[in-house]
Simulated assay, not measured.
Amino acid sequence: MNSAVTRQSGTSLHPLHAFFLSGMVPLFIGVLLNDYAYWYSYELQWKNFASWMLIGALVFNGLAWLGSIVFLVRTDKRMGKPIIYFLLLLATFVIGIINSFIHAKDVWASMPTGLILSVITVILACITTWIGLTSWRIGGAR
Rank of each mutant, 00 (worst) to 15 (best):
G139R: 05
W65R: 01
W39Y: 13
M1I: 02
N2W: 05
L117E: 00
I29F: 12
W39M: 06
R137G: 12
I95V: 14
L66E: 02
V70I: 03
L133C: 09
I120C: 04
L88Y: 04
S9D: 11
L115G: 04
V5Y: 03
H103R: 12
T11V: 11
V94S: 07
L87P: 06
P82G: 11
S12T: 14
M1L: 00
N34H: 10
F49L: 14
I84P: 04
G62Q: 01
T113H: 05
P15S: 06
N61A: 15
L90E: 01
G30I: 06
D76M: 03
A125M: 08
G114R: 08
S41A: 14
W39E: 03
G80V: 08
E43A: 13
F71N: 08
F60T: 11
L66M: 13
G140D: 07
S118W: 01
H14A: 10
Y42H: 15
P26K: 09
L89F: 04
V122N: 00
T128Y: 04
L88N: 01
R142G: 05
W136V: 10
V25F: 09
P15D: 05
F86V: 00
T75A: 12
L63P: 01
L58D: 11
F19G: 13
L72G: 09
P82M: 12
H103P: 02
K105N: 10
G23Q: 13
S68C: 08
R7M: 08
